[in-house]
Design a protein around this nucleic acid. Sequence first.
DNA 1: ATGAAAGCGCTAACAT
DNA 2: ATGTTAGCGCTTTCAT
Lengths: 335, 335
Amino acid sequence: MKRITIKDLAKFLSLSTSTISRALLDDKNVNLETRKRVLDAADQLGYKPNLTALNLKSGQSKTIGVVVPEMITPFSAKVLEGIQHVLYPLGYRLVITQSDENPLIERKNLQLLEDFNVDGIIINVCHETYNNDVYRRMMAQGTPLVFFDRIPDKSLDVSKVVVDDYISSSLLVEYLIKTGRKRIAHIMGPSTIRNAIERANGYKRILTKYNLADENLIIKTEGMSFEHGKDAVQQLLQRKVEFDSIFAFSDTLAIGAMNALLEHNIKIPGDVAVASFSGTELSTIVYPQLTSVQQPLVAMGEAAAELMLEKIKNRSAPCRTVLMDAVLVQRASTL
Amino acid sequence: MKRITIKDLAKFLSLSTSTISRALLDDKNVNLETRKRVLDAADQLGYKPNLTALNLKSGQSKTIGVVVPEMITPFSAKVLEGIQHVLYPLGYRLVITQSDENPLIERKNLQLLEDFNVDGIIINVCHETYNNDVYRRMMAQGTPLVFFDRIPDKSLDVSKVVVDDYISSSLLVEYLIKTGRKRIAHIMGPSTIRNAIERANGYKRILTKYNLADENLIIKTEGMSFEHGKDAVQQLLQRKVEFDSIFAFSDTLAIGAMNALLEHNIKIPGDVAVASFSGTELSTIVYPQLTSVQQPLVAMGEAAAELMLEKIKNRSAPCRTVLMDAVLVQRASTL
DNA sequence: ATGAAAGCGCTAACAT
DNA sequence: ATGTTAGCGCTTTCAT
């Protein structure tokens, strides 16, 4: 079952390998007749190009690294779907790594990807600044980096795909107010994640605008897990602060919060409405279904892949920021 | 920022590339002194081997394809974690594809992987027989295939990683009976999935053993989604068959079922207990938490990767079946 | 112990 | 329009 190479085709047709190569590449400098013969033979003998040889020739690894913070929610899977959708047809392979929300693991992952000679890395960071030195070094070495969702702090000029956290969270909070909620608690992610700050800012702005602000309503979590969401509610209850709704930084935190509420026999949305930010399928499989700001995850992945291709094509292309629209989807948890 | 090659090292140290190569490979035929100089220089100049060149030389793509039915639940992500854990350190890249429970998409995915010249494919099938011809052809061509979780029918001799569905489901059903349930409904997956049949058989055996069998208690679903789980409960209710518990084929179906129950104000586990098979994090984030048979997903991925390496090392190694232990984890949904 | 040379599969100058 | 040659980075015979 030996693989057929252009050499075999050359021998078979008594032509040189260059002619075979040219015919296969649709080069104009090849007789129409000859091209046809080559194509037929290729088909007949089952020729398939050797990507490795191509890559060696072109000096690329045709491998893109991806770093995501977690793979428990479908968030990353959806974005990956978009990335793959763009990159697979072009012959790119992926090395997907997950950091488990740990900057140190993220660092190791970046190192691993470097060892893989990746042509570029697409990243959703787990800490705003911790690995900046690595990002900076890699970019200096000519490895294109593209960020999505969670991005590094502004000291780094990078290509990125994001939604406007500030605006979207403002909209969501305003929506909660319109539905009659007045004591809106916020489960904010760790402040080492820029988006957590942005979303909290949107939240604060609206509460201030409606004169409903109260620092006691904000719980900053230490991490991003389901348990952190539960803890946040425990804390709210301990603080004895009144609240009739919760806006959580992410689906995971929101669902943890919902569980804590249900355990305390607090009705959703009767007693407390819950809303979140991200928009994974998770929000539709919990009961009651969760109102949330849905990010266009697949499209974000596609955009990130496109930005990567842009950078690969032209190393010195200027960094671009793609701003995607998020939409508020109302579900049972706030109705 | 040009990459350093062994050529550069050779020039730098006035040695031949062969000596450099040997030194780097710890070949005995190289002066200790020389080796040290080479290693130092490599370190100093920042030499990194070019994997593509290695691959071309060895005739491998160092790429493994993975086909999974879905990426919405963390099931596949966990298995992938195990696969990556074994394969990444060895320099293997992955091309991960998802079939969306559609045999036709699975077929396309296999084709794509073939185009990638993968060294092997690890698969969780979405249909017991539909793509048998492709599996067969690929294996005949010398591409190692390893299956996990859902496997093709017995007409194919393949390496695989599985749990004993029949036994595990028996245990689960017996457990439900021990907790006092007598009318146990079963939401069975499509019969184009071997495991659905196995688990249903385990279920039937125990019900028969305790004289509790009733064909009306079984709902065979058309698919594997959350919605199919909901529908199943609707059907049970329409049939007006009494039931005090549900054993679902998967977490997804179980959670869909739970939602339907809650919508009808049926208490879990008060009125109806719910249990499932799979063991993803999903079972711990729903309310109430879901009792389930937990498969050791990460370990399954590792085992699948090991089987793959075995086949890659020796194309004609006999096919092996790794049987993993699943454990029953009791949670609130049945207590 | 070291070097020279061939070759993995393919493309692209450079002939002709 | 087709062929010859070199070379991508590395390993590996075969010499020395």
